[in-house]
Write a protein that binds this DNA or RNA. Structure first.
Length: 584
DNA sequence: GCGATCAGCT
DNA sequence: CACAGCTGATCGC
């Protein structure tokens, strides 16, 4: 297909024709859920959101609040200067056509098969979970999907073909060296020299592009500053009696969609409520009374039902990696590499314009290889800017996991009567304790609620290693907040007959990596005779350099950050980064 | 007695 | 800090 061969967002009717159209069949739920839900309801109180402290509102940065009018986003000039040709990519996406047919007479199995994509192993589809089976489709929703069946593509610049594998391995090398090149102090802030990377990749320097401030967005942010005090907008709640309104950055302009916005009741003009993943600061406000239509992936919908009691008729499960037409806009879910059941949303308008909402994500070369994500094609990116500051550097997840596995086996070799407590979120950080359990070939103890949650993540090997019996294994999963000296003491006291020592593993991106000379990526946070707490720089958000590469590769026209946006000075700083990245 | 929300804390 | 909560208190039904 020829639709994506140039930079602009042109309409191309042929595009639509060459892609195969498939229809998802609505399957009604037979509510086969068990009574475990009742038990989970007892835990509801834990799902409330944290509010900002009054003291925080009072004493922080009053000057900045009232004196700075700041902008946040940028528009890349994409106009018709001749210089544009310099940066023009030639992208080809080969999409073999397949026949479209009526599904009315197909068997259940065939229907299921049709909703699945044939991408590479990177984006393998899992079979539907039995927990929530409904694909609710009220009449207003069209459920035609456009299936992308091939991720083969070639990238060339000025007639030179680029080997994508080479390109991405260059990036990985750069990221690795920059992550480990930290000194013990925070003295050097080494960031990757993108210009040289791009020069290596393309064999010649790339001309910088002029960047223009986005006045419209500037205005939207300053409006928001007037409505809300500086601080964390994600947790902001207005004074009693004042209803909080949905901020602009949670709405997708030109649509009736919002993303991760459940704290605002019925939002005016919104028909479709998208949820990117099951973390409380994103689903906050969602409960069984929810009466609109939520759109998310299978895993997240499972969790919304079992943990929050959201009714299946209020949820539409969307398939991964294909476009589904919702209220006239195509939407594709792309794995976000954050927690299980996390996805990004790619919205495609009838005229071809693309908007990407990353939700929470960790940028990786695998994500950039996705056939739906290509350079110079995206208009606006709503970006997870959690670690958008140059001092946030951490190693690739695999390396950190390897370190954790090594540490645990070393400790167990030295003293087999050691209990290993691995910190995790309700959803998130699974790879750490899973890898340890796989290496030791042992089971994983988790509490009853977490047992249910982990069994909904469609990970068979993980599921079969879980146990609710703490005596069956010395790998225990605990909440991240429980990985402290006193709480680990309490924990080991319960099992003191069997264990003489306990180590805590705290895998969080806030742990700055420390150069220990080798490949060990951990630090000792606290230590006593029988208790040691280890911090591992294991992050499920992008590091600064990963964000940088992500943006430098995709080159959107406009960036709207979704985290750390409560303070104008921080927004200014991020805006400065965005300008640099887009001009490379 | 239950669920929802809030304050405080990590 | 910010992440993604957790615990305990209070309020409405």
């Amino acid at each position: 297909m020829a639709a994506n061969e140039n930079n602009s967002f042109t309409e191309d009717k042929d595009d639509q024709k060459t892609l195969s159209l498939k229809r998802i069949i609505t399957v009604s739920s037979d509510d086969d859920d068990n009574n475990e839900d009742k038990e989970s309801n007892k835990r509801q109180r834990s799902l409330s959101l944290t509010k900002i402290k009054p003291s925080q509102l009072m004493n922080k940065q009053p000057v900045i609040r009232n004196t700075r009018q700041t902008s946040l986003s940028i528009i890349r000039t994409n106009s018709d200067e001749g210089d544009n040709e310099e940066r023009k990519w030639n992208l080809k996406m080969i999409t073999p056509s397949s026949s479209s047919s009526s599904n009315q007479t197909l068997s259940k199995q065939q229907k299921k098969k049709m909703t699945q994509t044939k991408l590479t192993t990177l984006f393998k589809q899992k079979p539907s979970s039995p927990l929530v089976r409904t694909v609710s489709s009220p009449s207003i929703v069209k459920t035609e999907t456009v299936t992308v069946t091939d991720r083969t593509r070639t990238v060339s610049l000025d007639g030179i073909d680029i080997d994508e594998e080479e390109l991405f391995s260059q990036w990985n090398d750069q990221l690795n060296t920059s992550a480990s090149a930290t000194t013990t102090t925070q003295a050097t802030t080494k960031t990757v020299d993108s210009k040289s990377v791009w020069k290596q990749i393309f064999g010649k320097p790339v001309k910088p592009k002029p960047i223009v401030d986005d006045e419209e967005l500037k205005e939207q942010w300053s409006q928001l500053d007037k409505e809300q005090p500086p601080g964390n907008h994600r947790f902001y709640n207005p004074p009693a009696g004042v209803k909080r309104t949905c901020p602009f950055y949670k709405k997708i302009p030109g649509t009736t969609f919002c993303v991760d916005a459940f704290n605002f009741g019925n939002i005016e003009g919104i028909q479709a409520y998208f949820l990117s993943h099951f973390h409380s600061d994103h689903y906050g406000g969602l409960n069984k009374k929810f009466s609109n239509m939520l759109y998310s992936n299978q895993i997240t919908c499972n969790l919304c039902k079992s943990q929050l009691g959201v009714r299946p008729e209020n949820m539409t499960i969307l398939p991964m990696n294909v476009f589904t037409n919702i209220h006239g806009i195509d939407v594709a879910l792309i794995d976000a590499n954050h927690c299980p059941g996390s996805n990004m949303f790619l919205f495609r308008f009838p005229n071809g314009k693309l908007i990407l909402h990353t939700g929470d994500f960790r940028a990786a070369s695998d994500i950039l290889k996705h056939p739906l994500l290509q350079p110079n094609q995206i208009d606006t990116i709503y970006l997870d800017t959690t670690y958008c500051d140059s001092h946030y550097r951490f190693p690739p997840q695999d390396e950190v996991i390897e370190s954790a596995v090594e540490l645990v086996s070393d400790v167990l070799k030295e003293n087999s009567k050691t209990l290993v407590a691995v910190g995790a979120y309700l959803v998130g950080k699974e790879r750490v304790f899973h890898a340890i359990a796989k290496a030791l070939d042992c089971k994983i103890f988790v509490e009853a609620r977490k047992f249910r949650v982990l069994n909904q993540l469609e990970n068979d090997d993980l599921s079969k290693r879980l146990t609710k019996n703490p005596h069956e294994t010395n790998i225990h999963v605990v909440g991240m907040g429980s990985v402290t000296q006193p709480m680990l003491q309490t924990h080991i006291d319960k099992y003191s007959l069997k264990y003489s020592k306990i180590i805590g593993i705290k895998p969080t991106g806030w742990t700055t990596p420390r150069s220990t000379g080798g490949s060990k990526h951990y630090s000792i946070e606290t230590k006593s005779s029988n208790i040691t707490v280890y911090g591992f720089p294991y992050s499920e958000h992008s590091s600064f350099n990963e964000l940088k590469f992500f943006i430098e590769y995709l080159k959107p026209k406009r960036i709207i950050p979704t985290v750390n946006i409560g303070r104008a000075n921080i927004r200014d700083k991020m805006n400065g980064y965005f300008k640099q990245w887009l001009s490379v």
